[in-house]
Design a protein around this nucleic acid. Structure first.
Lengths: 184, 184
DNA sequence: GTTCGACATGTCACACATGACAGGTAGGGT
DNA sequence: ACCCTACCTGTCATGTGTGACATGTCGAAC
């Protein structure tokens, strides 16, 4: 399961509590790569501890448990990351699905939806550019490096979708032209 | 559920059998947007028929049932596509997860994985460029328009990831330089 | 005439994810 | 003293997705 490796990956960078891990999934990680709520994270941490891939490093205030990756956990993570990408590579993205289904709409609706997508991606890209420009940012914990990698990915991702939407809008315009020309 | 709308979207473009729909998910649709196997598609078609969103248009050889979208189905699809993108927008992509976790690896492994990603995306992009260049392609059924939209998306997607991987490799090189400079 | 691959549909046990529910603590403001 | 917010962990019913299994047809090659 991928959640297993997502958690191992986060813990490999720095120890964290279940709560902190849950927060990580609310940012770029959950937005572009893999979603998870605390209701799957807590039980999964328990299972990982049972398998000896992580361990409870410290129990703090408010019942907080800080988890740490073990050498076996690191090994498992490395194997998975460097292993064959072949396997049952899960892909599931509702936004992208919407984009693919655009051709099922009438032309007006297509234009409307594509315009919205173009605007949203432009805004998201601008925001990311701002965050990234504030270089060596106010350090979102020990995961600053992680955040930068993710931010740069998100930026390119949004730019790519923006360009795609713009291209699709152009196509619509071209088609409309040809249509009215054919009316002669 | 998104599978519901994926099926409605496909049927909105042209009627198809469960088997044909299953095949659609093996191409760009399943690769970039939403995965599904026949074991979820067949039951879902049954449910959709029960809700009156699709209907069996024709029963052919080998027990094949051709499904067609109904007006209610079209309406449901439109509502979903144009509706608020807010809801529980599912995101789940194992490949992207791997990329986000790269910082959990040692430098050598990072370089190895990034290089592989750069190569893979370059190859995928080249293949797509070839397919798209053969314009008005040998018509993958009535879904040619669908395929083009998806192909252009895939192309930009792969280019974006390629650029990201290249950037990340550059960063690694820069870091290594600074490190050796600091050794003085 | 048989074998093989593509066509075509389906069930079921099991694993996984989500949302609703539940309970409790520490710190800061008023 | 009280309240509110953020912190922090957990369970459970319900819905969804996956892989293994099961079944049968049609056409083409051998």
């Amino acid at each position: 399961m991928s959640l297993t490796h997502a958690l191992l990956g986060l813990l490999a960078v720095a120890p964290a509590s279940g709560y902190e891990l849950t927060r990580e999934f609310e940012h770029e990680l959950g937005r572009y790569a893999w979603q998870a709520g605390h209701t799957s994270i807590y039980p999964e941490l328990g299972k990982l501890a049972g398998r000896g891939l992580v361990r409870v490093m410290h129990e703090g205030a408010r019942g907080a448990k800080t988890y740490d990756i073990t050498p076996q956990g690191r090994e498992e993570l490395r194997t998975w990351l460097l292993g064959p990408p072949g396997g049952g590579t899960t892909v599931r993205n509702e936004q992208v699905l919407r984009m693919f289904l655009i051709s099922a709409l009438e032309t007006d609706d297509q234009r409307r939806l594509l315009t919205r997508i173009a605007e949203n991606t432009a805004r998201a890209a601008a925001e990311l550019r701002e965050v990234l420009a504030a270089d060596a940012p106010p350090d979102r914990g020990a995961r600053a490096g992680f955040g930068r990698l993710a931010g740069e990915f998100g930026l390119r991702q949004n730019d790519a979708v923006h360009e795609w939407a713009t291209w699709a809008l152009d196509q619509l315009a071209v088609d409309a032209e040809q249509h009215s020309a054919a009316a002669y």
